[in-house]
C-alpha cells in the first residue's frame, strides 16, 4: 500500500518537474534560436552564461507585477481562464510514455484521453477573450473558436491512423508496436498531425487569435503579471506536449539505437521544438478563413488518404 502511494508520488513529482522545466528550456531555445536566425544574439546577461536564466528572470518579474483585472471584466471567468489554458497540458504530460514502462499513468484509451484533454485548452483562450471586456480580446476569442473548427478534425483523423496501425489506443502500446518502416507509412499523417497541432497551439503561422499586430495579443490583451505568465507557460507547455505526442505517435517515441530510450524521446521532442521555432521565424501569418480552407481542402483529405493507406496496408499485411 505504502509502496503504491510512494510510486504515485514519485511519478507525480517527476511529471510536475518535467512540466516546469521543459517549457522553460523550449522558451529559452526559442529566444536563442530565433535570435541567431535573425542575426541577433538574444539574451546574453541573465544568469551569466548566454543569458540562460532569462526566463527565470522574466518569471520573477511577472510575479512582482500588479495583477490587473479590468473593471468591465467578468472577474471569475477572467481569473479562471489561465488555469483552464494551462492545466490540460499538465494532464496530458502524465500519460506520455518516455520509455518502456516509464509513464505517469498507463491508460488503455490514452490517445483518446490525450486528444480530449488537449481540446479543453482552447477553452481558456475563448474564456479569456469573452471575459476581458475588450473588443480585441473578444475578436481573439472568436478567432480561437473559429480555429477550433478547422484543426480538430484533421488532428483526430491523423491520430486515429496511428491507432489503426498499432491496433491499440494505449500510447505505450502504440510505441511498443512501432517499427521503423512506419516512418514512411505514416509520414502524411504525421505532417497533418503536426500542422493541425500548430494550429491548436495558436503558433505562427496560425497565430491569428493572438496576432499582436492586428488584435494585440487577442485574448491576452488585458492580462498582466502572473496570469499573463501562465498563458505564456501554457503556450510553451503546449509546444512540448505537441512535440512529445508527435514523437510518440509518428517518430517512434523511445525507439532508437545506442542511447537510452528517454534520451531519444527528448532528442526527438527538441528537434520538433526546433521546427516549431523555425516555422515561426520563416512564415507570415495566415488569415482565419485561409486556415479553414487549408484544413478542409488540404489537411482533412490528406488525413483521410492516410487512413485509407493505413487500412489497406493493415489488411494486406494481415
Amino acid at each position: 500500500m505504502l509502496a503504491e502511494v510512494l510510486d504515485a508520488a514519485v511519478r507525480l513529482v517527476a511529471i510536475v518537474a518535467v512540466f516546469l522545466v521543459l517549457p522553460l528550456v523550449a522558451g529559452q531555445m526559442e529566444h536563442k534560436v530565433m535570435a541567431h536566425m535573425q542575426g541577433r544574439l538574444g539574451p546574453m546577461y541573465a544568469g551569466g552564461f548566454h543569458g540562460w536564466a532569462q526566463l527565470i528572470a522574466d518569471g520573477v518579474k511577472f510575479l512582482q507585477k500588479e495583477d490587473v483585472v479590468p473593471a468591465a471584466a467578468d472577474r471569475r471567468v477572467f481569473a479562471l481562464a489561465p488555469a483552464v489554458a494551462l492545466v490540460p497540458y499538465l494532464v496530458v504530460l502524465a500519460v506520455i510514455p518516455i520509455g518502456p514502462g516509464l509513464v505517469g499513468a498507463d491508460l488503455d484509451a490514452g490517445l483518446f484521453f490525450v486528444l480530449a484533454v488537449m481540446g479543453v485548452g482552447v477553452l481558456g483562450s475563448i474564456m479569456a477573450g469573452w471575459s476581458s471586456g475588450n473588443k480585441y480580446s473578444l475578436m481573439g476569442g472568436m478567432r480561437s473558436a473559429a480555429q477550433l473548427m478547422s484543426y480538430e478534425l484533421p488532428l483526430v483523423l491523423a491520430a486515429s491512423s496511428v491507432a489503426m496501425a498499432a491496433g491499440t489506443l494505449s500510447l505505450p502500446g502504440i510505441v511498443a508496436a512501432w517499427q521503423w518502416w512506419w516512418l514512411p507509412w505514416q509520414a502524411v499523417g504525421g505532417v497533418v498531425f503536426f500542422v493541425a497541432g500548430l494550429a491548436e497551439l495558436r503558433r505562427p503561422p496560425f497565430d491569428m487569435p493572438i496576432a499582436e499586430s492586428e488584435i494585440i495579443m487577442g485574448p491576452m490583451t488585458e492580462y498582466t503579471g502572473i496570469r499573463f505568465a501562465l498563458f505564456m507557460l501554457a503556450e510553451y507547455a503546449g509546444i512540448i506536449v505537441l512535440s512529445a505526442l508527435t514523437s510518440v505517435l509518428f517518430l517512434g517515441g523511445w525507439h532508437g539505437p545506442l542511447l537510452p530510450g528517454p534520451v531519444w524521446l527528448l532528442l526527438k521532442v527538441f528537434a520538433l521544438v526546433f521546427v516549431v521555432i523555425w516555422v515561426r521565424v520563416s512564415f507570415p501569418r495566415f488569415r482565419e478563413d485561409q486556415l479553414q480552407k487549408l484544413a478542409w481542402t488540404g489537411l482533412v483529405p490528406l488525413a483521410l488518404l492516410q487512413l485509407l493507406l493505413t487500412g489497406v496496408v493493415r489488411v494486406a499485411a494481415g
Binding site: A71, A72, W130
Partner: peptide, 9 residues
C-alpha cells in the same frame, strides 16, 4: 469602468 465593453461586459 474604463475600456470599451465588449464580450461579457
Amino acid at each position: 469602468v474604463v475600456g470599451i465593453g465588449a464580450g461579457a461586459a
